[in-house]
């Protein structure tokens, strides 16, 4: 069949469908992107295709921290200057970039690849919690920093991990919660304000 519904040639229809599957892309955006690809030089379009292929072929998970990497172990786990006794636990690889940008952390990471979400059926066995427990059992680690989001799911995940690790005798800490820079007190929710007050510091 040369043409799909509405006279769209089949390869274009297929590309539109593929774009439509991406997060945040509606049918109209998918069409616009597909027709854009049609117009750009072949070299650019193939570069995109190749980049997508490379990501899927060459990116693997670090066998230690489960961060995305090209070489196993990842650059963080390989770096001997980093403090190997502290592990910062994050929800997703993007969170590592955010924490690295802050320039305030020199330990290792552990990526859970999700948060506990009971109502969507995401349980402990769907996250990489078991691997974290094994790293702690290996003995070198003295502190776990739970850097999950301060949401219900993030808090539940942090508390779950803390309880799971309690028998191992490792110190489990949580990122401080309070007001983000540039926030309005007036619009702050009660829990954030209460925690900000509890975590107040001398000027």
């Amino acid at each position: 069949m040369a043409e799909g519904a509405g006279g769209t040639p089949e390869p274009i229809g297929r590309l539109i469908d593929e774009f439509h599957r991406l997060p945040g892309i509606g049918p109209k955006s998918a069409q616009r992107l597909a027709y854009h690809i049609l117009r750009v030089p072949e070299r650019d379009a193939l570069a995109l295709a190749e980049a997508i292929g490379d990501v899927k072929r060459r990116i693997i998970f670090c066998s230690s921290c489960l961060n995305i990497t090209e070489s196993d172990p990842c650059s963080f786990c390989q770096d001997q200057r980093r403090d190997r006794t502290i592990i910062c636990v994050v929800e997703q690889p993007l969170d590592i970039l955010a924490i690295e940008r802050s320039g305030s952390f020199r330990g290792l990471y552990h990526v859970l690849h999700g948060l506990l979400n009971p109502m969507d059926g995401v349980g402990p066995e769907d996250l990489h919690i078991r691997e974290l427990v094994e790293r702690v059992r290996a003995g070198e680690v003295t502190e776990i920093i739970m850097a999950t989001n301060p949401s219900l799911e993030g808090e539940a995940t942090a508390m779950y991990v803390q309880r799971l690790l309690a028998p191992a005798g490792v110190r489990v800490t949580r990122l401080a919660r309070g007001l983000p820079s540039g926030a309005d007190l007036e619009y702050a929710d009660d829990i954030t304000l209460a925690r900000a007050l509890e975590g107040r510091q001398e000027l």
Partner: peptide
Amino acid sequence: TITPYRAIRDDLERSATALYCA
């Protein structure tokens, strides 16, 4: 917020039960 139910949030068992009820 009218009530944030903070004690539920700060306790794993109670969070789990409240989510189950929800």
